[in-house]
Amino acid sequence: MSLTSLVPLIGIADVVIGLSLGSRLFLIAVGLSLIFGVLGVLNFAHGGFYMLGAYVTLAVVSNVVDNFWVAAVVGALAVGVVGAAIEFSAIRRLYDRVDSDLDQLIVTFGFVLVIHETVRFVWGSGSYSIDPPDVFNFSVTLGGSTFNAYRLVVIGLAVGVLVALWLFITRTYFGSLVRGTSSDREMAAMLGVDVPRLYTGVFFLGSVLAGLGGALSAPLQSTSPALGDQVIIDAFIVVVIGGLGSMSGAFVGAMLIGMMQSLGPQFISAGSIAIPFLAMVIVLLIRPEGLFGGIGE
Protein backbone atom coordinates (compact mmCIF):
# COMPACT_ATOMS: atom_id res chain seq x y z
CA MET A 1 0.00 0.00 0.00
CA SER A 2 1.47 3.33 -0.96
CA LEU A 3 1.53 6.31 1.33
CA THR A 4 -0.96 8.26 -0.74
CA SER A 5 -3.56 5.56 -0.41
CA LEU A 6 -3.11 5.57 3.35
CA VAL A 7 -3.36 9.28 3.96
CA PRO A 8 -7.12 9.64 3.31
CA LEU A 9 -7.73 7.05 6.03
CA ILE A 10 -6.48 9.44 8.69
CA GLY A 11 -9.52 11.41 9.73
CA ILE A 12 -9.45 14.60 11.75
CA ALA A 13 -11.01 12.58 14.54
CA ASP A 14 -7.95 10.33 14.62
CA VAL A 15 -5.74 13.37 15.10
CA VAL A 16 -7.95 14.84 17.81
CA ILE A 17 -8.12 11.48 19.57
CA GLY A 18 -4.35 11.16 19.34
CA LEU A 19 -3.78 14.61 20.79
CA SER A 20 -6.24 13.97 23.62
CA LEU A 21 -4.48 10.70 24.44
CA GLY A 22 -1.23 12.63 24.34
CA SER A 23 -2.68 15.25 26.68
CA ARG A 24 -3.52 12.76 29.39
CA LEU A 25 -0.07 11.23 28.98
CA PHE A 26 1.47 14.67 29.26
CA LEU A 27 -0.27 15.38 32.55
CA ILE A 28 1.09 12.22 34.12
CA ALA A 29 4.52 12.42 32.48
CA VAL A 30 5.19 16.05 33.30
CA GLY A 31 4.73 15.39 37.01
CA LEU A 32 6.96 12.33 36.79
CA SER A 33 9.57 14.37 34.96
CA LEU A 34 9.37 17.31 37.36
CA ILE A 35 9.86 15.06 40.39
CA PHE A 36 12.81 13.36 38.76
CA GLY A 37 14.33 16.63 37.64
CA VAL A 38 14.27 18.16 41.11
CA LEU A 39 14.39 15.25 43.54
CA GLY A 40 16.15 12.67 41.39
CA VAL A 41 13.37 10.22 42.28
CA LEU A 42 11.84 8.04 39.57
CA ASN A 43 8.37 7.58 41.00
CA PHE A 44 7.06 4.15 39.98
CA ALA A 45 3.82 4.88 41.83
CA HIS A 46 3.00 7.81 39.56
CA GLY A 47 0.62 5.64 37.50
CA GLY A 48 -1.09 4.72 40.74
CA PHE A 49 -1.50 8.43 41.51
CA TYR A 50 -3.10 8.96 38.12
CA MET A 51 -5.52 6.10 38.77
CA LEU A 52 -6.29 7.39 42.25
CA GLY A 53 -7.14 10.80 40.77
CA ALA A 54 -9.70 9.18 38.50
CA TYR A 55 -11.25 7.14 41.31
CA VAL A 56 -11.51 10.03 43.76
CA THR A 57 -13.11 12.17 41.06
CA LEU A 58 -15.65 9.46 40.29
CA ALA A 59 -16.41 9.00 43.97
CA VAL A 60 -16.83 12.73 44.63
CA VAL A 61 -18.98 13.39 41.59
CA SER A 62 -21.36 10.57 42.44
CA ASN A 63 -21.55 10.88 46.22
CA VAL A 64 -20.72 14.42 47.24
CA VAL A 65 -21.15 17.10 44.65
CA ASP A 66 -22.60 16.70 41.20
CA ASN A 67 -20.07 18.92 39.49
CA PHE A 68 -17.31 17.34 37.47
CA TRP A 69 -14.92 20.29 37.71
CA VAL A 70 -15.14 20.54 41.48
CA ALA A 71 -14.68 16.78 41.71
CA ALA A 72 -11.64 16.91 39.42
CA VAL A 73 -9.99 19.57 41.58
CA VAL A 74 -10.76 17.59 44.73
CA GLY A 75 -9.36 14.46 43.06
CA ALA A 76 -6.15 16.20 42.01
CA LEU A 77 -5.60 17.79 45.43
CA ALA A 78 -6.35 14.53 47.25
CA VAL A 79 -3.69 12.79 45.19
CA GLY A 80 -1.31 15.66 45.93
CA VAL A 81 -1.82 15.09 49.65
CA VAL A 82 -1.26 11.35 49.27
CA GLY A 83 1.91 12.04 47.28
CA ALA A 84 3.23 14.54 49.78
CA ALA A 85 2.52 12.10 52.61
CA ILE A 86 4.46 9.36 50.82
CA GLU A 87 7.39 11.69 50.20
CA PHE A 88 7.35 12.91 53.78
CA SER A 89 7.01 9.52 55.44
CA ALA A 90 9.04 7.23 53.20
CA ILE A 91 11.02 8.65 50.31
CA ARG A 92 12.59 11.37 52.43
CA ARG A 93 14.41 8.75 54.49
CA LEU A 94 16.35 7.62 51.45
CA TYR A 95 17.90 10.83 50.07
CA ASP A 96 21.17 10.39 51.93
CA ARG A 97 21.79 6.76 51.06
CA VAL A 98 24.65 5.76 48.81
CA ASP A 99 22.44 3.98 46.29
CA SER A 100 19.40 6.11 47.00
CA ASP A 101 18.09 6.06 43.40
CA LEU A 102 17.44 2.35 43.36
CA ASP A 103 16.08 2.25 46.90
CA GLN A 104 13.65 5.00 45.97
CA LEU A 105 12.58 3.11 42.87
CA ILE A 106 11.96 -0.02 44.95
CA VAL A 107 10.05 1.85 47.65
CA THR A 108 7.85 3.60 45.12
CA PHE A 109 7.29 0.21 43.49
CA GLY A 110 6.11 -0.99 46.91
CA PHE A 111 3.58 1.83 46.80
CA VAL A 112 2.42 0.65 43.35
CA LEU A 113 1.29 -2.58 45.01
CA VAL A 114 -0.19 -0.82 48.03
CA ILE A 115 -2.18 1.72 45.97
CA HIS A 116 -3.40 -0.94 43.55
CA GLU A 117 -4.70 -3.18 46.30
CA THR A 118 -6.16 -0.33 48.32
CA VAL A 119 -8.11 0.86 45.29
CA ARG A 120 -9.31 -2.68 44.70
CA PHE A 121 -10.36 -2.99 48.32
CA VAL A 122 -12.29 0.27 48.35
CA TRP A 123 -13.82 0.31 44.86
CA GLY A 124 -13.74 -3.34 43.80
CA SER A 125 -12.09 -4.75 40.71
CA GLY A 126 -14.74 -3.75 38.20
CA SER A 127 -14.52 -0.69 35.99
CA TYR A 128 -16.30 2.65 36.15
CA SER A 129 -16.96 5.34 33.60
CA ILE A 130 -18.76 8.66 33.45
CA ASP A 131 -19.96 11.00 30.76
CA PRO A 132 -18.05 14.18 30.05
CA PRO A 133 -19.49 17.31 31.69
CA ASP A 134 -22.76 18.26 29.98
CA VAL A 135 -21.55 21.53 28.45
CA PHE A 136 -18.95 19.72 26.37
CA ASN A 137 -20.72 16.43 25.89
CA PHE A 138 -21.62 16.70 22.23
CA SER A 139 -20.26 15.29 19.04
CA VAL A 140 -18.23 17.30 16.62
CA THR A 141 -18.17 16.17 13.02
CA LEU A 142 -15.27 17.41 10.96
CA GLY A 143 -14.25 16.12 7.57
CA GLY A 144 -16.61 13.18 7.89
CA SER A 145 -15.33 11.91 11.20
CA THR A 146 -16.85 12.32 14.62
CA PHE A 147 -15.34 12.96 18.04
CA ASN A 148 -16.52 14.21 21.41
CA ALA A 149 -16.01 17.93 22.05
CA TYR A 150 -14.66 17.18 25.52
CA ARG A 151 -11.47 15.90 23.88
CA LEU A 152 -10.73 19.44 22.72
CA VAL A 153 -11.17 20.63 26.31
CA VAL A 154 -8.62 18.10 27.54
CA ILE A 155 -6.14 19.16 24.87
CA GLY A 156 -6.67 22.82 25.75
CA LEU A 157 -6.17 22.15 29.45
CA ALA A 158 -2.96 20.22 28.78
CA VAL A 159 -1.55 23.13 26.80
CA GLY A 160 -2.69 25.46 29.58
CA VAL A 161 -0.88 23.36 32.19
CA LEU A 162 2.29 23.39 30.10
CA VAL A 163 2.22 27.19 29.80
CA ALA A 164 1.35 27.70 33.47
CA LEU A 165 4.14 25.36 34.58
CA TRP A 166 6.63 27.08 32.34
CA LEU A 167 5.67 30.49 33.72
CA PHE A 168 5.76 29.13 37.25
CA ILE A 169 9.23 27.65 36.89
CA THR A 170 10.80 30.50 34.96
CA ARG A 171 9.01 33.57 36.32
CA THR A 172 8.32 33.00 40.01
CA TYR A 173 10.51 33.01 43.10
CA PHE A 174 9.49 29.45 44.01
CA GLY A 175 10.33 28.46 40.44
CA SER A 176 13.81 29.86 40.74
CA LEU A 177 14.30 27.91 43.96
CA VAL A 178 13.17 24.78 42.15
CA ARG A 179 15.61 25.37 39.31
CA GLY A 180 18.43 26.18 41.66
CA THR A 181 17.84 23.14 43.83
CA SER A 182 17.58 20.84 40.85
CA SER A 183 20.97 21.90 39.55
CA ASP A 184 22.80 21.96 42.87
CA ARG A 185 21.11 20.82 46.00
CA GLU A 186 24.00 21.47 48.41
CA MET A 187 24.50 24.96 47.11
CA ALA A 188 20.80 25.73 47.45
CA ALA A 189 20.79 24.43 51.00
CA MET A 190 23.80 26.60 51.84
CA LEU A 191 22.01 29.62 50.41
CA GLY A 192 19.21 29.04 52.89
CA VAL A 193 16.71 27.12 50.80
CA ASP A 194 14.62 24.78 52.96
CA VAL A 195 15.35 21.82 50.73
CA PRO A 196 13.17 19.20 52.50
CA ARG A 197 10.14 21.47 52.32
CA LEU A 198 10.84 22.31 48.72
CA TYR A 199 11.08 18.60 47.92
CA THR A 200 7.75 17.88 49.56
CA GLY A 201 6.27 20.80 47.67
CA VAL A 202 7.54 19.57 44.32
CA PHE A 203 6.36 16.04 45.04
CA PHE A 204 2.97 17.50 45.94
CA LEU A 205 2.85 19.44 42.68
CA GLY A 206 3.88 16.43 40.59
CA SER A 207 1.27 14.27 42.31
CA VAL A 208 -1.42 16.89 41.75
CA LEU A 209 -0.63 16.84 38.04
CA ALA A 210 -0.93 13.05 37.91
CA GLY A 211 -4.20 13.22 39.83
CA LEU A 212 -5.45 15.91 37.45
CA GLY A 213 -4.55 13.73 34.48
CA GLY A 214 -6.56 10.86 35.96
CA ALA A 215 -9.49 13.13 36.80
CA LEU A 216 -9.68 14.72 33.35
CA SER A 217 -9.33 11.34 31.63
CA ALA A 218 -12.09 9.71 33.66
CA PRO A 219 -14.78 10.58 31.06
CA LEU A 220 -12.62 9.27 28.21
CA GLN A 221 -11.70 5.85 29.52
CA SER A 222 -12.86 3.17 31.87
CA THR A 223 -11.31 3.35 35.30
CA SER A 224 -10.23 0.05 36.80
CA PRO A 225 -7.43 -1.03 39.14
CA ALA A 226 -5.33 -2.10 36.14
CA LEU A 227 -5.19 1.49 34.87
CA GLY A 228 -2.18 2.57 36.92
CA ASP A 229 0.03 -0.27 35.73
CA GLN A 230 -0.87 0.38 32.10
CA VAL A 231 -0.29 4.08 32.16
CA ILE A 232 3.00 4.12 34.10
CA ILE A 233 4.78 2.25 31.34
CA ASP A 234 3.53 4.73 28.74
CA ALA A 235 4.66 7.53 31.04
CA PHE A 236 8.13 6.01 31.32
CA ILE A 237 8.38 5.90 27.54
CA VAL A 238 7.31 9.52 27.31
CA VAL A 239 9.76 10.85 29.87
CA VAL A 240 12.64 8.86 28.42
CA ILE A 241 11.98 10.09 24.90
CA GLY A 242 11.38 13.65 26.03
CA GLY A 243 14.18 13.60 28.59
CA LEU A 244 13.82 12.93 32.30
CA GLY A 245 13.33 16.35 33.91
CA SER A 246 12.21 18.17 30.77
CA MET A 247 8.71 19.62 30.64
CA SER A 248 8.61 20.54 26.97
CA GLY A 249 10.14 17.12 26.27
CA ALA A 250 7.31 15.50 28.21
CA PHE A 251 4.82 17.43 26.08
CA VAL A 252 6.35 16.48 22.74
CA GLY A 253 6.98 12.89 23.84
CA ALA A 254 3.41 12.56 25.09
CA MET A 255 1.92 13.89 21.87
CA LEU A 256 4.13 11.53 19.83
CA ILE A 257 3.03 8.48 21.81
CA GLY A 258 -0.59 9.66 21.81
CA MET A 259 -0.62 9.95 18.03
CA MET A 260 1.03 6.56 17.75
CA GLN A 261 -1.68 5.02 19.94
CA SER A 262 -4.39 6.67 17.89
CA LEU A 263 -3.06 5.87 14.45
CA GLY A 264 -1.54 2.47 15.35
CA PRO A 265 -4.74 0.49 14.73
CA GLN A 266 -5.00 2.06 11.24
CA PHE A 267 -1.69 0.64 10.19
CA ILE A 268 -1.84 -2.51 12.21
CA SER A 269 1.11 -4.65 11.46
CA ALA A 270 3.03 -7.18 13.44
CA GLY A 271 5.32 -5.48 15.89
CA SER A 272 3.58 -2.11 16.01
CA ILE A 273 3.12 -2.07 19.80
CA ALA A 274 6.83 -2.79 20.06
CA ILE A 275 7.81 0.50 18.39
CA PRO A 276 7.51 2.74 21.49
CA PHE A 277 9.74 0.37 23.46
CA LEU A 278 12.24 0.23 20.64
CA ALA A 279 12.24 4.02 20.57
CA MET A 280 12.81 4.04 24.33
CA VAL A 281 15.82 1.75 24.02
CA ILE A 282 17.33 3.78 21.18
CA VAL A 283 16.89 7.11 22.96
CA LEU A 284 18.40 5.72 26.15
CA LEU A 285 21.43 4.49 24.25
CA ILE A 286 22.00 7.45 22.00
CA ARG A 287 20.79 10.32 24.11
CA PRO A 288 19.98 9.22 27.67
CA GLU A 289 19.21 12.82 28.63
CA GLY A 290 16.31 12.66 26.16
CA LEU A 291 15.65 14.43 22.92
CA PHE A 292 14.94 17.70 24.72
CA GLY A 293 16.77 19.67 27.37
CA GLY A 294 16.55 19.79 31.15
CA ILE A 295 14.12 21.30 33.60
CA GLY A 296 12.30 24.46 32.64
CA GLU A 297 13.00 23.96 28.98
Binding site: F36, L42, D99, D101, L102, L105, I233, F236, I237, V240, L244, A274, F277, L278, M280, V281, L284, L285, P288
Partner: peptide, 16 residues
Protein backbone atom coordinates in the same frame (compact mmCIF):
# COMPACT_ATOMS: atom_id res chain seq x y z
CA UNK B 1 23.94 2.82 31.48
CA UNK B 2 23.80 2.94 35.24
CA UNK B 3 21.32 3.22 38.09
CA UNK B 4 17.87 4.49 37.04
CA UNK B 5 18.82 4.48 33.37
CA UNK B 6 19.87 0.84 33.57
CA UNK B 7 16.56 0.00 35.26
CA UNK B 8 14.71 1.83 32.50
CA UNK B 9 16.54 0.27 29.58
CA UNK B 10 16.11 -3.25 30.95
CA UNK B 11 12.45 -2.49 31.53
CA UNK B 12 12.21 -1.35 27.92
CA UNK B 13 13.95 -4.49 26.65
CA UNK B 14 11.63 -6.66 28.72
CA UNK B 15 8.54 -4.91 27.41
CA UNK B 16 9.93 -4.99 23.89
Amino acid sequence: LEEIYFALITLAFGML
